[in-house]
Design a protein around this nucleic acid. Structure first.
Lengths: 195, 195, 195, 195
DNA sequence: GATGAATGAGCGTTCATTCAT
DNA sequence: TATGAATGAACGCTCATTCAT
């Protein structure tokens, strides 16, 4: 049955997230992923071309979820302010609830390996578009004065990303949740958002 | 002579930056660094304990330079606006002029390896303090209203970092230099900087 | 199947004996043992922790056999004379029939490496006890006058060992077998064995 | 001056004995010998072809001394009994007074390396002859009944060697000196020495 | 002669991947 | 489909040896 196949695929993906979060992509052996997934080493290769593809699929699948998630929430926001709040809140709460995934995205995916980079680009660009659309919409309906959209997006994504990295690295014991409001205030100021 | 030793040390460091930028820390063989530095493999080990230490020293030495550089420039800025401009301008121009180093900083240093992370933390935290000091000073002299300093720093560093990553990844053909003004405008808005 | 695993284990052990006898423990590469055993290099590590453990197990397994062998034969001997004959005869014939093992025992096991020495000590001490028991029995039943047992054991083992080394080193073309009677005569005289 | 050269040669030899005794021939780096000898690494190579030759010369020089020593003492012995006593006493006391050298001869020189073996053979054979001569003399003057000289020599050398190894390995806390008399008693019995 | 920085060959070990069962 | 024993390429590091000074 196809659901069985799908189930084992997700099993391996989850195991990979745990394993990679725990020891890092390069340090984590395929056999460890297999053990955590409760399958034999060889079985991994029935579902993935190689170890690298596991990493790529982890990102594509989970980041896809993440973005779909935000997109769904976003459709409910009526103002640019509400939409920005959705982005910040959802980004932080998703990461906070998926710490292992956060570790993988914040650390392990910063790979110079070109194949990984290319494969990861699509969902990332999708997230970028999503942010840029919100800004564009804000400009279009006059809530935000004209601004350099790319730079604004870099600021928004970069800030969220850095806060998440700080949290993952436990540089601060603070919850991400507690950063939602201050971060939003900064974004509103930066974008000169009209109330 | 000691200058000779120092020279070869720097030579290896430079070679390491090139090599790591090109293939990534894990993929890059010691023999590649040696080849680029024009020395034998074994020579590396006369200057560094092991491959990992090369990475750590790359960061400590070059990031140290970078921060010293900013600190020097900063002392000339009289207003918070000027100081922010110094940070943005220096960050971008330094990275733009040291592309390989930028690649290493943006990608390779997001190492989950705890020893590397600890060693790298000091200069990073130093940079963080530097940014936070500028914000604090701004607050103290009334140029900036009270704000969450940590979050503000995350925004500033995160934005600069993301813009640099975008540039490194060649996600946009834009120069970093061209982003100085728009980025600054965002920061000033975010911090509610008084003119 | 477990017999298969056991079989390959013995295969590697035998290959190791040949390889070490031929080039010495330090000179002999793991890849040579693997080649002789007809397995891949990595396979060695499925059966042994590392190269050193191969040496240790060679000794423990084969020396264990050797001593078990002597012990079995010894139980048949009714007089001290018969028991001494058993020791000399079995020692020489075992070595003569296992030349590679003899080389390893005579040369490679004189390892200064403390881990190897400790691991090797047990079977050696076992052999020593065995010899000492025979002497003690001889004293107890009046066949041998009181004597310093440790020194007597040193003489017996040392003589057998030296004869074996001479033979291994091919310092003499003589068979070990031909030395059984003269050696025994010396032992009987040394111990003042009563007929 | 040649004495200067000779002095440094001996210096290196002594350093080598210490170094090898401490860490074993294979584990002991040339640079360690150099450090102990108070010379530069390269200097070793002005006196010795390579590391292996250092080991060989250690043995040849010191074993030469040792044998010359015994030979000198032997010439004073009037009876076979006295001569045997000289051998045992000198062997044990020499080793006891040169523990590092004993370690090297008992452990490190048991090398399967053919070049080492060949080079070492000469002094060893010289020592063997010396022992055999004593036995032969004993037979010639009727103090010892006819016996297999080679086997008798194997017994004598093997016993002394094993006692020394036991002592070096600290398998027993006993001094070698205390073994002189019991060992001699065994030899006299073995050889049926007439009083 | 003496130095010691530089060399680079050499090897133990790991682990992603395969394939016979 | 699933297994996991076996594979063997790959690489960090050591250290005996050299040679410019």
């Amino acid at each position: 049955m196809d659901t069985q196949r799908e189930g084992k695929f997700q099993q391996i993906l989850d195991a990979a997230i745990e394993a990679i979060a725990e020891s890092g992509f390069h340090q984590c052996q395929v056999s460890k992923i297999a053990r955590l997934a409760g399958v034999a080493d060889g079985t991994i290769y029935l579902y993935f071309k190689n170890k690298e593809e596991v990493l790529i699929r982890v990102f594509q699948e989970r980041m896809g979820d993440f973005i779909a998630n935000i997109r769904r929430e976003l459709s409910l926001g009526k103002t640019t302010g509400a939409r920005l709040r959705t982005i910040v809140r959802t980004h932080f709460s998703y990461m906070e609830q998926n710490r292992s995934l956060a570790i993988v995205t914040q650390l392990e995916l910063r790979q110079p390996n070109p194949r990984v980079r290319i494969a990861i680009n699509a969902p990332i660009l999708d997230y970028f578009s999503l942010i840029e659309e919100v800004i564009q919409q804000g400009i279009d309906c006059g809530e935000i004065p004209k601004t350099d959209i790319r730079v604004a997006r870099q600021m928004i994504f970069g800030s969220l990303d850095e806060a998440t990295t700080d949290w993952v690295m436990a540089r601060s014991p603070r919850t991400l949740e507690s950063e939602v409001e201050p971060m939003l205030a900064l974004f509103e100021g930066a974008l000169r958002l009209k109330k």
